[in-house]
Simulated scan of single mutants.
Amino acid sequence: MARPRAFISFQMEDRWARDFLKEHARNPGNEVEFVDYSVQNPFDSSWKTQCKLRIAQTKGTIVLIGPTTYQSEAVDWEIRETINQNHYLFGIQINSDKTHRVPDGIPSSAVIRWNFSQIATWLSTWV
């Protein structure tokens, strides 16, 4: 089975969740691959060009939803670019005890709680 490649979009303050997700994916039993393109200056024109290419190399984008994700202009741009490329998109609430505001562009039906089995199941539909 081909490994679905996913672009991870997140607010920098939530990079712990990105790191945790990537560690789960390293388990040899998981058929998941992530592309991480963290940036320091997300509004540099070369960043957008590189990000657009990275998204194009994946099947879709996972948005890690934390307390301030909905306010991030970079996350908003990545969501819009994913939609423009007609790729898959879903969000993950990163805190098990809290529900954070979902960024525009992600349907509520495409938001799940943190559960790696469920994440892997969603990604398996991308192949």
Results as ranks from 00 to 15, higher is better:
Pro28Met: 04
Leu21Ser: 03
Ser124Ala: 11
Leu89Ile: 12
Trp122Ala: 13
Ser45Ile: 13
Pro42Met: 08
Val75His: 00
Phe34Thr: 10
Asp14Ala: 08
Leu53Gly: 12
Asn41Gln: 13
Arg18Asp: 06
Tyr88Trp: 12
Cys51Gln: 12
His24Tyr: 14
Glu13His: 09
Lys59Thr: 11
Arg113Met: 02
Phe90Glu: 04
Gln11Trp: 08
Ser109Trp: 03
Ala2Asp: 10
Pro103Asp: 08
Ser117Phe: 11
Ser117Trp: 05
His100Val: 00
Arg54Asp: 02
Pro67Lys: 11
Val111Lys: 08
Phe43Gly: 07
Trp114Cys: 09
Asp19His: 03
Thr58Leu: 02
Tyr37Leu: 14
Gly29Pro: 03
Ser108Arg: 13
Arg5Lys: 13
Gly29Tyr: 01
Phe10Ser: 13
Asp14Gln: 03
Thr61Tyr: 01
Ser108Ala: 12
Lys59His: 13
Asn115His: 06
Gly66Lys: 00
Glu13Trp: 01
Glu33Thr: 14
Gln118Ser: 12
Ala2Met: 10
Asp104Ala: 14
Pro67Gly: 01
Ile119Gln: 07
Ile83Met: 07
Val35Thr: 10
Thr69Leu: 07
Ala25Tyr: 00
Gln118Tyr: 06
Trp122Cys: 14
Ser117Gln: 13
Gln57Arg: 12
Asn115Thr: 03
Pro103Ser: 07
Asp44Trp: 07
Arg3Val: 13
Ser38Cys: 10
Arg18Gly: 01
Leu89Tyr: 07
Asn86Asp: 09
Arg54His: 12
Glu13Leu: 10
Trp114His: 08
Thr99Ala: 09
Phe90Pro: 02
Gln57Tyr: 02
Ile8Glu: 01
Ile92Gln: 04
Leu123Tyr: 00
Tyr70Thr: 05
Ser72Arg: 03
Glu78Phe: 01
Asn115Trp: 08
Ser117Glu: 14
Thr58Val: 06
Arg5Thr: 10
Ala6Tyr: 00
Ile119Phe: 00
Met12Phe: 12
Trp114Gln: 05
Ala6Asn: 02
Gln11Gly: 01
Lys22Phe: 14
Asn86Gln: 11
Thr61Asp: 03
Ile65Asp: 00
Gln11Ala: 07
Leu64Glu: 02
Asn27Ser: 05
Asp104Cys: 09
Ser72Met: 09
Gly105Phe: 04
